[in-house]
Computed example of a mutant assay.
Amino acid sequence: MYKSWWKILGAVLVVYSTVWGFLSTVPELPIIRESIRNLYFHVPMWFSMIVLFSVSVFHSIKFLRTNNPADDIKAVESINAGVIFGLLGIVTGAIWAKFTWGQAWSFDVKQNFAAISLLLYFAYLILRNAIDEEQSRAKISAIYNIFAFPIMVVLLFVLPRLSDSLHPGNGGNPGFNAYDLDSRMRMVFYPACLGWILIGYWIYTILYRVRTLEKNNALSS
């Protein structure tokens, strides 16, 4: 059990942040009001996605250096897990936008760039399925992944700050830290981020084990 301490920690933090996220008090803000509780879910989804994509690009670089098939599997499965959290980020963001901006998708610049970022990784998965030869698929996918990651960073963190945006912290809007993320919310928000990141990594390890077992069974049959 001592090897699984981080899994237990992740589960505890997610349960804590979910329960306390709904029960704790939040600042009274115009327009946002109670919907600010979505901060405990929407933002951690994106953080988890970014961490998982970082794990993926690390293994893609490692694969190009070692040609170890295990690194290729780790790269693709971390992207599979990351895409799940990216979709959850899109959905929770759309729900939040519905209550604060009046519509789920207002074609805000950050919404658009977030969708494009996710499409980059859908393209990665499509590319893998389009190449039959295993070694070529792994190398081309790794190279694509290495270029996709910095593009994703620019789309999510750089370009939105250069344009008008409804999102806090972008387009001249103050970020949450500047005016309303008080100590009460930090006691839930930070554990939520860590908890969901750990759960995301756990999902990635499960996907990797399943893919490895499938590959070993295919080789032995």
Rank of each mutant, 00 (worst) to 15 (best):
A115G: 03
F107V: 08
I90M: 12
G82I: 01
I146Y: 08
I95R: 08
F85K: 07
I50G: 06
Q111A: 08
A123W: 00
F63E: 04
A148K: 15
S56M: 09
A94M: 15
V154G: 15
K98D: 10
E77W: 10
A81W: 04
P150T: 08
S106A: 13
Y124S: 03
Q111I: 11
V153T: 04
I73A: 12
T92M: 11
A138T: 10
V109D: 00
Q103I: 14
L120F: 05
I79L: 02
I126F: 05
F85G: 04
S56F: 13
E134I: 06
S54D: 06
Y121N: 01
R65M: 14
N80L: 08
R65A: 14
F53P: 00
V154D: 14
S54G: 07
R137V: 07
E134K: 06
S106H: 13
G89K: 07
S60N: 08
D72P: 13
F147M: 00
V158N: 10
I95V: 13
E133W: 05
S106W: 11
F53I: 01
E77Q: 15
P160L: 05
Q103P: 15
E134C: 02
F99I: 09
M49S: 11
I116G: 01
V57M: 09
S117E: 00
V57K: 09
V109T: 00
L155D: 11
M49T: 07
V153P: 03
A142M: 05
L120W: 04
G89Q: 12
K62Q: 12
G82N: 06
L52H: 02
V158C: 11
V154Y: 14
P69R: 15
F99R: 12
A138D: 12
F53A: 02
H59W: 11
F122Q: 02
A97D: 07
E77Y: 10
L52K: 02
I143E: 09
S56Y: 14
P160F: 04
A75L: 13
M49Q: 10
F113C: 01
I73C: 09
N112F: 10
F157V: 03
H59I: 09
Y121C: 00
K74Q: 14
Q135L: 09
A114Q: 02
W105Y: 06
I61M: 12
A123P: 00
V51A: 07
F157L: 01
F113P: 01
N112K: 12
Y124I: 04
V91A: 13
T66N: 03
A130C: 03
K62L: 12
A123L: 04
A142N: 05
A70D: 15
V153W: 07
Y144Q: 00
I116H: 01
E134W: 00
F113Q: 03
F85D: 06
P150M: 10
L127S: 03
I151H: 12
I116M: 03
S54K: 05
N112R: 06
V83E: 09
I73T: 12
F58M: 11
W101L: 04
P150F: 05
F149D: 08
M152I: 14
S136I: 12
L118P: 01
